[in-house]
Structure formats: structure tokens, C-alpha cells
């Protein structure tokens, strides 16, 4: 099965980008969730930045996977941050008050700065 994520390491921060424009299909979500959890559980990465640029839609099943990942990262003492949310997805995050549990940054540069990385 093709990988659903693209990862890039910038000074110790793993930036994750998504190949799917719409993260809805049950199989895609499971695979995406597994790939994200592997970053923490198998690759032992602790500083993970999810960049959703180019992603047009997330369903509640995708939100659930993100919450799962956030917990996994916290459990190993890491920090998960999110950026690149398009306006409509950001609105859904706001409606659900998910900013209470996620660290959401306006830009990738803002997020990297929060990790202490400056370019």
C-alpha cells in the first residue's frame, strides 16, 4: 500500500505532510493513523509537526486519529504541533474547541520557532 505521509526532518523536528486532499476513507484514515503512530512508537520521534497545507477536508474520524496521535506523542514526552489548516477545517477545530488539546500554529515558520528552530 502506498504511503500516505511525506516526512521531512528539520533540525530535529519531523514535518509531516499529507498526500491525500481529503482524509475521509476508512482505509486511508487507518493507514494514515498507523503511519503517524509509527513515527512515535517505532521511530521514536518526539517533535512532530503536522502541516495540513493542501488538505481540503478532514472528517471526524480523522480528528479522532489526530487526538490518538497527540496522546501518543505526549505519552513519550514529545510535542505535536499542527499548522497549515485551511479556513474551513480551522473553523471545525474551533467549533469543537480542539485548540484546547492541540497546539495549532498559523504558519510552519511559527511552529518551527515554537520548537526552537529558526531559519
Amino acid at each position: 500500500m502506498a504511503e500516505r505521509l511525506v516526512t521531512l526532518n528539520v533540525n530535529g523536528v519531523t514535518i509531516v505532510r499529507f498526500k491525500d486532499k481529503r482524509i475521509v476513507d476508512a482505509g486511508n484514515i487507518e493507514q494514515m493513523g498507523d503511519e503517524m503512530l509509527q513515527l512515535v512508537n517505532a521511530q521514536h520521534l518526539k517533535q512532530i509537526l503536522l502541516n495540513f497545507e493542501g488538505v481540503e477536508f478532514l472528517s471526524s474520524a480523522a480528528f479522532n486519529k489526530l487526538i490518538e496521535l497527540n496522546k501518543a506523542v505526549k505519552d513519550v514526552g514529545g510535542v505535536l504541533r499542527i499548522t497549515g489548516l485551511r479556513a474551513e477545517i480551522l473553523e471545525a477545530f474551533k467549533m469543537l474547541r480542539l485548540n484546547k488539546i492541540f497546539d495549532i500554529r498559523k504558519t510552519e515558520a511559527d511552529a518551527l520557532k515554537a520548537y526552537g528552530v529558526t531559519n
Binding site: 472528517s59 480528528f63 479522532n64 487526538i67 496522546k71 471545525a92 474547541r97 484546547k100
Partner: peptide
């Protein structure tokens, strides 16, 4: 707010 279910019906309403 950190549960991994229970948002779908609420999102529809909103």
C-alpha cells in the same frame, strides 16, 4: 474534548 469518538452528530447539527 479529548475523546476519540462522538463528534459526527454534533457537527451535522452545527
Amino acid at each position: 474534548v479529548d475523546m476519540v469518538h462522538g463528534r459526527g452528530v454534533w457537527l451535522i447539527k452545527e
